[in-house]
Design a protein around this nucleic acid. Sequence first.
DNA 1: CCTAGGATTAGCT
DNA 2: GCTAATCCTAGGC
Length: 223
Amino acid sequence: MPLKRKPPEPPEPPEPAQVQAQHIAGRPLKPGDFIGDSHEIARMLIGATLLVDGVGGIIVETEAYDRDDPASHTFGGLTPRNAAMFGPAGRAYVYRSYGIHWCLNFVCCEEGHGAGVLIRAIEPTKGLDVMRERRGLQDPRLLCSGPGKLGQALAITHAMNGHRLDRAPFKVMAAPEPVEVVTGPRIGISKAVDVAWRFGLAGSRFCSARFAQAAPNKDLPHD
DNA sequence: CCTAGGATTAGCT
DNA sequence: GCTAATCCTAGGC
């Protein structure tokens, strides 16, 4: 067998999420863009734009949930409450949290799988005054820095459960360019607390909670 | 800075 | 009856 020199290393194949992000950069996301691993989708959604009736901003924090995950609403199988999460990808799963808040998820994977991404925080960029009115607050950092706050600021209701994300009132646009994503443990759960399935936009001041610092030798500017 | 408790309802044991 | 993918306020350090 002749000695065969390996051809020059081809460029490292980008991570699937990056391929997807580059392919759809800045474009409206379609249902097919949500067919895939919920952790990859959760990462891909950081930097994307979410609008509901023209109000919203840039997604800066997400959490991934999947059917084999004890913390997932779909862990125990199909029920009336979680049915939307077992439905087609690219739709909304809206649930009531603590009897008070409406929280928004994006359904992932094929119909019948039972995975999704919780949208935990956005940086408000459109409809600031509407959001301030709905929240009764002025500070932009407090408008959407948490799934319940976001639900109130965007007027998410149970009526949107199962609704397609590529149709009004929703508008979801992929990140226009790659962003730096940080990870950490999920928040507010009592099961599977160790896995780093929360994703955030690096350095964003609009997340619901701090991510552990990855580079402690570099002081962040105090602004 | 931090921790603790209440609000409020649907779903499941 | 108890728990929950949360938020807000009050009070202590």
